[in-house]
């Protein structure tokens, strides 16, 4: 995917690679000065904001290697000693129902990958059909989607559980995936906004060529929606990765990372073992960070190359 995207990006010429420089070449130099000045002001603002965001992460990292007493004595100080055992303890000495952190990683990856894929598919289908086709009840469906988002539900868990039980979907990954495969919600709203301003002209041409509505969706629209799907998908995947409630109830014997870590964290907090608690959090965080950094590149490259005219 990256291999094909990059040459196209470059193929758009220097303008695409460095639009600023390109456009400025055509303009008066005075413009350039003010512009750079503005950008540097923005840079300063961004930098300060970024520092405040990186700070909690670094703080957690530093405190994750401290001893307990050291942490309690000064939470802001640079670590005086390095307790690597905080990490090894958490990784090797703890387990939940016989599943170690490694096992939880595996279960979480499984649930997150399939859950995200299913949910993206369902919400893009719903969003696409409702955004692009006029039919009776389409506005009502949009209203319903907003309603689903807005209703703060009170104690629906027993009802949900009894339905899951009737359908024999408790204690099963399939059951959790079906719960995750909702087509209406946050993803729907975002993808609806996206499809709403996606051009219909390709579909038009394809229709003339005799392509079916299904073909248009799967072969043309869905691939065109890739940047949006990735953006939404990353956010959704992180949500699933961190979801506690659903897997804790429907997958009691196969704890996901979020469930297992939550159990560990509460145990560690109960003992005020904050450094080990932070170590657990860092371990749970690293894979998300790695995946995000990888996908961040993909998002960038996709979006540069993804313009319809490109």
């Amino acid at each position: 995917m990256n291999d094909t995207a990059s040459p196209r990006a470059n193929g758009q010429g220097t303008c695409a690679a460095d639009k600023t420089a390109c456009a400025e070449g055509l303009k008066k130099p005075r413009f350039k000065v003010t512009k750079d000045w503005a950008l540097w002001v923005v840079f300063a603002v961004f930098f300060v904001y970024a520092v405040t965001l990186v700070f909690p992460f670094v703080w957690m990292l530093f405190n994750s290697v401290k001893g307990n007493q050291e942490y309690f004595t000064n939470i802001w100080a640079f670590p005086q000693s390095f307790h690597v055992e905080n990490y090894t303890n958490v990784l090797f000495d703890y387990d939940v129902h016989g599943v170690t952190l490694f096992g939880m990683f595996g279960i979480s990856i499984l649930v997150t990958l399939f859950g995200t894929a299913l949910s993206l598919l369902m919400s893009s289908i719903a969003a696409y059909v409702i955004a692009k086709y006029k039919f009776f009840g389409r506005n009502a469906l949009y209203a319903l989607a907003v309603f689903v988002m807005a209703v703060p539900v009170a104690g629906t868990l027993p009802a949900q559980y009894s339905i899951m039980q009737t359908l024999h979907l408790t204690n099963s990954i399939v059951g959790v995936l079906i719960l995750y495969a909702g087509g209406f919600g946050f993803n729907f709203l975002i993808l609806y906004g996206f499809f709403k301003n996606l051009s219909w002209e390709y579909a038009e041409a394809a229709l003339i060529d005799g392509c079916s509505d299904f073909g248009i969706f799967f072969k043309i629209m869905l691939p065109m929606a890739r940047p949006a799907l990735i953006a939404v998908g990353v956010i959704h995947a992180i949500g699933l990765w961190n979801d506690y409630l659903t897997p804790s109830i429907y997958l009691p014997n196969t704890p996901t990372l979020a469930v297992g870590v939550n159990l560990l964290l509460s145990e560690l907090r109960g003992r005020s073992a904050y450094p080990e608690m932070f170590a657990t959090m860092i371990i749970a965080l690293i894979p998300i960070l790695v995946v995000f950094i990888c996908f961040q590149k993909t998002i960038m490259e996709n979006t540069v190359a993804g313009g319809l005219k490109g």
């Binding site: 129902h97 016989g98 599943v99 170690t100 490694f102 096992g103 939880m104 990683f105 595996g106 279960i107 990856i109 499984l110 014997n253 196969t254 894979p287």
Partner: peptide, 17 residues
Amino acid sequence: AMALVMALGVGLAFSAC
């Protein structure tokens, strides 16, 4: 690497179940 971890995890999970 993730696939490996996953396989390991699922295996462990089922053995634990």
